[in-house]
Design a protein around this nucleic acid. Structure first.
Length: 235
DNA sequence: AACCAGGACGTGA
DNA sequence: TCACGTCATGGT
């Protein structure tokens, strides 16, 4: 079946939605503006991205924002405060983000690991990825989100939205696993962190509008490509 | 009132 | 490996 290339998808989404400019955290000193890929500049900003990557696991970003507001109000935005607070209290602040007991544990583990890891951010990508994956609570998507957005490493994030859109376009079959998806994108798309950030952010923005499980919207991508069906109905 | 949201882990086969 | 249950709050 004839399908769009990843690069064609990227160009189409860029025309449709414009530059996204992730990561969309709110507590940052220097917010991430579309077109500005020099961010993040400071250790505090890199930590906020890592924190947000854990909090948004299978969770709507609006709920993550509420949890981040709680942390700020309770003086728990910075790393030392999170390291000092007990897990139960941290969990209460994280309640709006869901899975609050698990996420409190995950955040405590990541917080103790982060300073040394961030200090060694010049280490090889593969080694850093292994170290992240060795942590309880950090899976492939969270690890790659941290590497791509906090450390500006050229690695693709594969989330449910990415798979949903690319599968609907007939890119890979249903039995592909995370590494299969990632290798495919890496083969077909420039290994450039700025472009990979935009590609992923654009896929998420597009999916929120046109690939929600409830919404009736029909994606313009489906008419550009030759994929059959207006939108994927089962994933 | 079910269903869903930018996953990851533990378990059993 | 891999499918399946579990974790949890807030919006639609």
């Amino acid at each position: 079946m004839k399908t769009l290339t990843i690069h064609q998808v990227y160009q189409a989404l860029l025309t449709l939605h414009g530059p996204q400019g992730w990561w969309p955290l709110q507590n940052l000193a220097s917010p991430y503006h579309p077109g500005d890929y020099s961010y993040p500049h400071t250790a505090a900003e890199r930590w906020e991205i890592a924190l947000g990557a854990v909090l948004t696991q299978n969770t709507a970003w609006t709920n993550v924002e509420k949890a981040l507001q709680n942390l700020q109000q309770q003086g728990l935005s910075h790393l030392p405060a999170i390291q000092a607070v007990d897990e139960t209290s941290l969990g209460q602040a994280l309640r709006p983000a869901g899975y609050f007991r698990q996420k409190a544990k995950k955040v405590k583990i990541l917080a103790s690991f982060w300073p040394n890891f961030d200090r060694q951010r010049h280490l090889p990508l593969a080694e850093k990825r292994e170290r992240l994956l060795a942590l309880w609570g950090i899976g492939p998507e969270t690890a790659d989100s941290i590497l791509l957005y906090a450390h500006q490493e050229p690695i693709m994030v594969i989330d449910t939205y990415t798979k949903r859109i690319l599968r609907a376009l007939g890119v890979l079959d249903a039995q592909a696993n995370y590494d299969d998806w990632q290798q495919y994108v890496h083969q077909e798309f420039p290994r450039d962190y700025k472009m990979l950030q935009e590609l992923h952010a654009l896929l998420v923005a597009h999916a929120k509008i046109y690939f929600s499980r409830q919404g009736p919207a029909t994606s313009p991508l489906m008419s550009i490509g030759k994929a059959k069906g207006k939108r994927a109905d089962k994933f």
